[in-house]
Simulated assay, not measured.
Amino acid sequence: MLIQRSDGYKILVDPYLRKNKDTNKTPEDFYDVDLILVTHHAGDHYGDVVEIMEHSNAKLVAPSDVAYFVKKECQVPLTSPKDDPENGRVYASAYGDTRCFGVTKTHCAQAIHLSRGKVNDVPVYGLPASFVIEVEPGVTYFHPGDTALHEGLNLLHELYHPNIMAIGVSNIKPHASREMSAREAAIACSWIGADYIIPTHYMPDTDDLDEFLQNIKYIYPRAQVFPGIGKSYLFHPGTVEELEGAENI
């Protein structure tokens, strides 16, 4: 997901590109981003973050295990702002953590899932995250990463009142883990209370999206859903419009 502020500042979340058969975008298209958020260490979320960090000046906000792997794998030296206040680029985040980047605030929130990597062939598990991003005044976006339905989503509504969000509605390949069913995803949307919904994490050649659309119609009818892959939207508080022929995702 690419989010661009009204002043041009770019925020990239979970940059899964090269191996993603559902996009024609490549990491090179995002060497100009200013901030990257990664929810957990899984191929379809961690993706190409290392390459983009190597070829950009972007800062990274991610759980501590992701921050460790990025610093370990990057061919350029990366430090945290606490160690290098002027040049530090990697912010190791944890639940409840808030970071400020100009007018943008990122809030690290709980995700019920797992984050897994390997150190010397030994599995290492970390805590996955979701993020609430106060992009700029009047625009608050929720990015769930991968999470099962949990009551903490109600708290995000009480704290931040996101007005636009993404939500995973199924799995991304046959027999893979499915964190939420279509019905559970619709319930999650109603708890978070966003007006505008972007469904994600499903196989385009299945009925999963249609099943979600049916469930959201009955469980959370006031929401407006913007389905489809590779589309761009212009958001003003209160309205969303599709941008025809836009270059960004």
Rank of each mutant, 00 (worst) to 15 (best):
M1L: 12
G8E: 11
P15W: 04
R18F: 10
K19C: 15
N24F: 15
K25N: 15
T26C: 15
D32F: 08
V33H: 01
I36T: 01
H40N: 08
H41C: 06
V49Q: 07
V50M: 03
H55L: 05
S56Y: 10
N57E: 06
L60I: 05
A62E: 01
V70D: 00
V76I: 15
V76E: 02
D83Y: 14
D84T: 13
A92T: 07
A92I: 06
Y95N: 06
Y95W: 12
R99F: 14
T104Q: 08
Q110P: 11
A111P: 03
N120G: 09
N120Q: 12
V122M: 11
P123N: 10
V124K: 13
L127I: 15
E136Q: 03
H143D: 09
P144T: 08
T147F: 02
A148F: 08
L153Q: 11
N154A: 09
E158S: 11
E158F: 14
Y160W: 13
H161G: 09
P162F: 11
K173S: 04
A182D: 09
E184C: 02
A188Y: 03
S190V: 03
W191K: 09
I192G: 00
I192Y: 01
I198F: 08
H201R: 09
M203F: 12
D205W: 15
L209G: 02
D210Q: 13
N215R: 04
I216V: 14
K217A: 07
K217I: 03
I219R: 02
F226Y: 00
K231A: 13
Y233P: 06
L234F: 14
F235A: 06
P237I: 13
T239M: 08
T239W: 08
E247P: 05
